[in-house]
């Protein structure tokens, strides 16, 4: 039996890099993000959304910069006047239809479980300690760490991240944009926390949660990290 090529609808997780005109230099900001979570920045697919006021040459420079940093840019979105810029740069144009979905519509439900059940794999279980300089990425699955995660280590998953030990390194759950992913940790002292692209450094973590048993999720808008003590 020969299989035929076919076109199917699919849902991939892509991040949008929103670039307002009045923001500071993109260069230093992006480098900072890459320093904070190098492996994460290499993994994600990005669509650049420049502000209407950005010129074609500014956009072209930004595209070069993303390329230099090894960030996977797949196209442009935003104001339709920039469509020609995308054509000139050989990038895809994604027309933005950013509708905010009501959490109860079926649309929102599927957005909340981006990994379809038939492809959700069993968790990746790692016996720690995970040492400084080590990166672990659980693709399309949850990550369970038994033991500690050192400062300078980086642990990531498309699904949830569980740490049965002391977490001192960087942690990212929902790496490809899964807003339902969460982080669970027995001793919470992270350098950096990221959930579905939202970041927070250790300086922004509420003091009473430091070293505690903590659960991290996203709030309803998926724009803010929420921290809770576990019983």
């Amino acid at each position: 039996m020969t299989s035929m090529p076919r076109i199917r609808a699919n849902r991939y997780s892509v991040m949008t890099l929103e670039w307002p005109k009045d923001s500071g230099p993109l260069d230093s900001w992006l480098r900072l993000q890459c320093d904070k979570a190098p492996a994460l920045m290499q993994e994600i697919a990005i669509v650049l959304k420049p502000a209407m006021e950005h010129t074609a040459s500014e956009i072209s420079e930004a595209v070069d910069l993303l390329d230099q940093l090894g960030i996977g840019l797949i196209g442009l979105t935003g104001d339709p006047q920039h469509r020609t810029v995308a054509d000139e740069l050989g990038l895809a144009w994604l027309s933005s239809n950013n509708v905010t979905v009501d959490p109860d519509t079926p649309e929102a439900v599927s957005a909340r479980s981006p990994v379809p059940d038939e492809t959700r794999n069993s968790a990746l279980v790692i016996e720690g300690p995970v040492r400084s300089g080590v990166q672990i990425y659980a693709k399309d699955r949850d990550l369970v760490i038994i033991g500690q995660v050192s400062e300078g280590a980086e642990i990531m998953a498309d699904g949830h991240v569980h740490v049965y030990g002391r977490l001192r390194g960087r942690v990212a759950a929902g790496v490809s944009g899964q807003a339902d992913a969460e982080i669970f940790c027995l001793t919470f002292e992270p350098e950096l926390v990221s959930l579905a692209g939202m970041y927070c450094g250790s300086d922004q973590i509420p003091e009473e949660l430091w070293s505690a048993r903590v659960r991290v999720g996203l709030d309803g808008t998926a724009q803010k990290l929420t921290f809770a003590l576990m019983g």
């Binding site: 300690p129 995970v130 040492r131 400084s132 300089g133 080590v134 050192s150 400062e151 300078g152 280590a153």
Partner: peptide, 13 residues
Amino acid sequence: VRDSDRILGILQS
């Protein structure tokens, strides 16, 4: 201490 942690990571991989 940090360098030792890194060496331990290399050792175990």
